[in-house]
Write a protein that binds this DNA or RNA. Structure first.
Length: 480
RNA sequence: GCUGGGGUGACAGAGCGGCUAAUGUGACCGCCUGCAGAGCGGUUUCCCGGGGGUUCGAUUCCCUCCCCCAGCUCCA
């Protein structure tokens, strides 16, 4: 079995072949940290988390880098306008680096909460100024960059003479020229050799706070540069997979690629597979603050189990434009409960002597692998897992060891999809022993056929999100 | 206008040349239960946007039309 991934470089699904036999090196474009993580960001990171986990599950040794951008990009045109980090910092009355520190800490907290904590390195742009300046110089030395008034541009026309550009996104430069009309400032047009050129290093105006000394004066890096530099530093001149949102297909990734090629001059593709994740809509519309359909991860975590959120992410395909809503989260919650109930009932099952689950386990391993190999078809994988849960549910006549093994397998495979599955939530609630006590009393009442009182206990508990279930083996409870 | 992605049962959402189209939710009936929950069994519902074509055969390929969504400026 081999994994097939949709490669934006060729616009087709391709068999994944790593550069080194057992190692996979992945770079994921992370977040510009001036604002809080929202569902859309998280959805994309979840896709790469699943990619990482799945490849690890298949036996690869995954080395995964995801950057954290802590130098603001600009608010309007590519190479002019205001720095977003500075703008956000000013609004919150913080130093830019103070804002960044705060946001980074928060980002980690939320990534951890969402069970996405397995990158090997999360490099930050501000920690790589020396390397970036060095890269700009190299690009100039190699003939693909030129300086104008303290700003250094990438010479796209020159690059295009020697290499394929933009390659990703398949755009032709004429389209770009049309698109640039009216949007690029006069100053910029007069400085640039051609309107397609983009900034490698930008001269800082006096009031600009985040700036660094360079051979071209005080300035700050262009927004494509950090990824090129940090990817090359930690993953080498050529690596396996580069991921990002669809919005990066153009212009960020072609520019990044061009920079890498201009830096090394080896002429090889710096990245073998470019993988992009579609954006989600919220309540059927593009997510935006003004439409009020903007959910931050923080908000969601207040009301939903992280496993529910991950269930939603795993239930959609990373390349399909999918819709997110609170209703869809409720649906995800029910799916998760179905799995939880499966484990829950196994816990209290005595088991029998049949061994039919052996075949089912073999079946699910194979099915899971083959659907995931097809460009990470997580929604289909999820339906297979639900089918497997159903098989377990009707196999309580299997011997206990086998039942436990099946439960472990279910947890393992859901884990590959980034979903932490807790068997039962007994005992993890404060005051759990008192609930047990109440149920003992209720048991007595039931034995004496005092059902009204017994039901009262059950009703009162359900008001507190404790679900009581009577089974032949006695009552048990779980959190809702 | 250009570039992508879609239109499948009550809903969500897979499948994409040939099992009476997965899975979940919902509804209904039954088993179990004092009742309920969970689970199980069954039922419910789609010939897959309209039209044309290719094929022995299409939801799945091609053409055309209609309708949605996203991108084309920073953006996951």
């Amino acid at each position: 079995m081999s994994l097939r991934l949709y490669n934006s470089l060729t616009n087709s699904k391709e068999d994944f072949v790593p550069i080194e036999e057992k190692t996979v090196r992945i770079y994921s474009c992370g977040q510009t940290i001036y604002e809080d993580m929202h569902v859309g960001n998280a959805k994309t990171y979840a896709a790469w988390d699943i990619l990482n986990r799945y490849m690890t599950w298949k036996g690869y040794d995954v080395f995964h880098v995801m950057n954290v951008t802590d130098v603001g990009h600009l608010t309007d045109d590519a190479d002019s306008g205001e720095d977003k980090v500075e703008k956000a910092a000013r609004e919150k009355k913080l130093e830019p680096m103070e804002l960044v520190t705060r946001q980074v800490r928060r980002w980690y907290r939320e990534m951890d909460a969402l069970n996405m904590k397995i990158h090997n390195i999360n490099p930050r742009a501000t920690g790589h100024m020396v390397e970036m300046i060095d890269a700009v110089q190299t690009i100039i030395d190699n003939g693909y960059g030129y300086e104008r008034n303290g700003t250094v541009y990438f010479d796209v026309v020159k690059f295009k003479e020697d290499h394929d550009y933009p390659k990703l996104g398949g755009r032709i430069l004429d389209d770009l020229k049309a698109g640039a009309g009216g949007r690029v400032s006069e100053d910029e047009l007069s400085e640039k050799k051609s309107p397609y050129d983009f900034a490698l290093w930008i001269k800082a105006e006096p009031e600009h706070i985040m700036k660094w000394p360079s051979p071209w004066g005080k300035g700050y890096p262009g927004w494509h540069l950090e990824c090129s530099v940090m990817a090359a530093k930690y993953l080498g001149e050529q690596f396996d997979i580069h991921t990002g949102g669809v919005d990066h297909i153009f212009p960020h990734h072609p520019n990044e690629r061009a920079q890498n090629m201009a830096m090394s001059c080896a002429g090889d593709e710096p990245v073998r597979y470019w993988v992009h994740s579609a954006h989600i809509t919220v309540n059927g519309e593009k997510m935006s603050k003004s439409k009020g359909n903007f959910y931050t991860v923080e908000e969601l975590l207040e009301n939903y189990d992280p496993a529910v959120i991950r269930m939603f992410f795993a239930s959609i395909h990373y390349r399909s434009q999918s819709d997110f809503s609170l209703e869809s989260l409720e649906e995800s919650k029910k799916r998760l409960e179905r799995f939880e109930n499966t484990l829950h009932t196994i816990d209290s099952s005595q088991g029998g002597d049949k061994k039919t689950l052996k075949d089912d386990m073999e079946w699910i391993r194979e099915e899971f692998g083959s659907v995931m190999d097809d460009d990470m078809n997580t929604p289909l994988a999820m339906s297979k897992l639900l089918e497997f849960a159903g098989k377990i549910n009707k196999s309580h006549d299997n011997n206990k060891e086998l039942l436990d093994e099946a439960a472990e397998l279910l947890k393992e495979l859901l884990g590959v999809l980034g979903i932490p599955l807790e068997p039962a939530k007994e005992g993890v609630v404060d005051g759990g022993e008192y609930i047990d006590l109440l149920l003992d009393i209720r048991e007595e009442l039931r034995n004496n056929k005092e059902f009204a009182m017994a039901d009262l206990i059950r009703d009162e508990l359900i008001k507190r999100d404790i679900v009581v279930e009577d089974t032949p083996e006695g009552a048990r409870w779980r959190t809702k």
